[in-house]
Design a protein around this nucleic acid. Structure first.
Lengths: 209, 209
DNA sequence: TCGTGCCTTGACCAAATGGTAAAAAACAAG
DNA sequence: CTTGTTTTTTACCATTTGGTCAAGGCACGA
């Protein structure tokens, strides 16, 4: 058997393929994050990417395939900061560092944040497995870690799960509700830098034993 | 002139009209909150309401009109708790009461919360005026009130605007990201009751001077 | 009971949408 | 240049979608 039977041969992608797939994904991120899955159209993605609609379908198996690919890429990058929580570090500094990274990410990648938020709000129809299989174990692991820190008296006691939810809620809020923030707090510097400082200061107070 | 010229005569709505408009709005809230504006279809609303599509268009001028009506109703109810912040009350108890009411609302009306969230995430295309004209003045007024409390040393000092954002972020999170919460925290009682207690305890600590 | 005006519906429409087929164009290897 | 492959486009299709229209049904006051 020279070539393995009934297996898809990967065939490494050409430079053009790599480039165009990236262009398409970037355009799709714009469109999906702004209109949600059902609200986004292939024509919009085509126009945003500068490619023709059939050409997009040459690179991806369909609208849903693009969306799924975006969510996959998202999860990997999104989970990293939580993964990096170090059991051997100083609890307070570890968590504050996590919060800081999360704030930076939601400011640097608001589109990703909104894409994720939109998907969850709609009941995570295309992400259920990802949540259960990818996020859940990590969440449980870090909950246990934080609980350990609290039991040791190195953090103020509280429910670790709700603590993590609090952090997510606050860090995502500034990305997801940007339109609201911009209307209510027109001073951009106060909104951006103030947010980071406020959130950090707030959690420092909450977490200090 | 028996009847005033060039003015729309209100013509009080019949019982049937009142009932069907309510039914339609309720069904539309289901559909819009789950799929967003562009993702929702009149057929879905028709099926959810048990009325035919043309019949729905008999009661409303179109898809957008239904959506706008929902957002209007939403804003009124949504703003009430903030309006009720009493300058003469005890600062800490006033804010904790506000937080409690907000948590109750996001648990009692998750659809409204998601509808609002979806609209804001998409850049508030149908709510810009509402935000500037309705929410902004109230927001500024209450920011000033809280700032006064802080200046008087009755609350820990912080940016009042960001404080309000924090409250909104936390209270909305449990409604908007319910799908995520349910996966990560399957114990329903811990999720629901724990959330309220956690948020209240957290802000009590943050706000205490 | 009868009509008048409110309510409901089936049939239909134009535009938009996700997707396809095949030919043309661009490109790479010899 | 020639040939085989990859990329792009043109033309097209079936379905869905928001919305219309005219005709039928129904309630309710006289």
């Amino acid at each position: 058997m020279p070539q393995p039977a009934s297996e898809t041969i990967p065939k490494k992608p050409s430079r053009i393929q790599l480039r165009n797939r990236r262009i398409i994904l970037d355009a799709a991120l714009d469109v999906f994050s702004q209109h949600g899955f059902r609200g986004a159209t292939l024509d919009q993605i085509a126009e945003a990417s500068g490619l023709s609609k059939p050409n997009i379908l040459y690179y991806f198996d369909g609208k849903e395939a693009i969306h799924v690919e975006l969510l996959n890429a998202l999860m990997a990058e999104w989970l990293a900061p939580l993964t990096d929580l170090d059991p051997d570090g100083d609890p307070l500094e570890e968590l504050l560092g996590y919060i800081r990274r999360k704030m930076e990410m939601s400011q640097a990648y608001p589109r990703e944040s909104r894409l994720f938020a939109g998907e969850i709000i709609q009941g995570a129809p295309r992400m259920g497995p990802h949540l259960s299989a990818g996020l859940k174990p990590l969440f449980d692991e870090k909950c246990a870690l934080i609980q350990g820190w609290m039991d040791a008296g190195r953090l103020a006691p509280m429910d670790p799960g709700h603590l993590i939810f609090s952090i997510w809620a606050m860090t995502q809020h500034y990305a997801d509700f940007d339109a609201q923030v911009c209307v209510l707090m027109p001073d951009e510097a106060r909104a951006r830098d103030g947010a980071t400082r406020h959130v950090e200061q707030m959690f420092r107070k909450v977490l200090t034993p």
